[in-house]
């Protein structure tokens, strides 16, 4: 069950298995980065309730599209998706979360982002993609800038992280600015990074 094939990750549908992973991700430090500071202990029952609410949201007309990220070694390492697809304005907001810190800085998030951007433009016919991150998340800022997103807004003190008010940064990319996945795979050396980590650079 693979919807979109990448080099370091594949984007796959959510399965029952993800409930336990989600419990793990929501209870480790990754959550602080993914949610701009909103984290704390959370029980399995609460996770289950969130999953149920999300399933119901789809029935109520929620337009988001979400994938799990499966690394080349078969591990489910996080999720990525379009949190809000606005088909009228042809805009979507992206969200991404790698819950396994061992897979940070390895190119997995970048690989997934390329797949998702291509999906939003080529399959959903969107003409603009946007995403937000927080000031302290320099790694995310570098990643999205490399892929071609431009910083468009800095909302001051928009979120609270470990007792400090920090800015929220919003990035945007127009479809004519997208240079194509193939170009970026080359430029960002993703094939070599996949080979180095998994011994194969094939999709």
């Amino acid at each position: 069950m693979t919807v979109l094939h990448g080099l370091l990750v594949d984007l796959v549908p959510s399965t029952a298995e993800f409930g336990e992973k989600m419990y793990q991700f929501w209870n480790n430090e990754s959550r602080m980065w993914a949610t701009m500071g909103d984290y704390g202990p959370i029980s399995r029952a609460q996770i289950e309730r969130i999953r149920e609410e999300r399933a119901q949201a789809v029935e109520r007309g929620y337009t988001g599209v979400h994938f799990m990220m499966r690394a080349r070694d078969g591990q489910i390492i996080g999720n990525i998706g379009l949190n809000w697809v606005d088909y009228y304005n042809r805009v979507a907001y992206l969200g991404s979360w790698i819950g396994e810190p061992d897979y940070w800085s390895g190119g997995h998030g970048t690989d997934a982002l390329l797949l998702l951007v291509e999906y939003g433009l080529s399959w959903l016919d969107l003409r603009r993609l946007a995403l937000s991150t927080m000031g302290p998340n320099v790694r995310a800022q570098r990643n999205v800038e490399k892929v071609g997103f431009r910083l468009e807004a800095r909302e001051r003190q928009a979120t609270l992280v470990n007792g400090a008010w920090v800015d929220a940064l919003t990035y945007g990319m127009l479809r004519e600015e997208w240079r194509g996945r193939d170009v970026l795979v080359e430029e960002l050396d993703l094939r070599a990074r996949a080979e180095q980590r998994y011994g194969t650079g094939d999709e």
Binding site: R128, R150, A153, R156, G172
Partner: peptide
């Protein structure tokens, strides 16, 4: 605080959205 480029469909075109904040 910023400009979301061509963020809103408006009468055959896409226009920028200006963002503001007050603390």
């Amino acid at each position: 605080e910023g400009t979301l480029r061509q963020h809103v469909r408006w009468d055959g075109d896409y226009v920028d959205l200006e963002l503001f904040g007050l603390l």
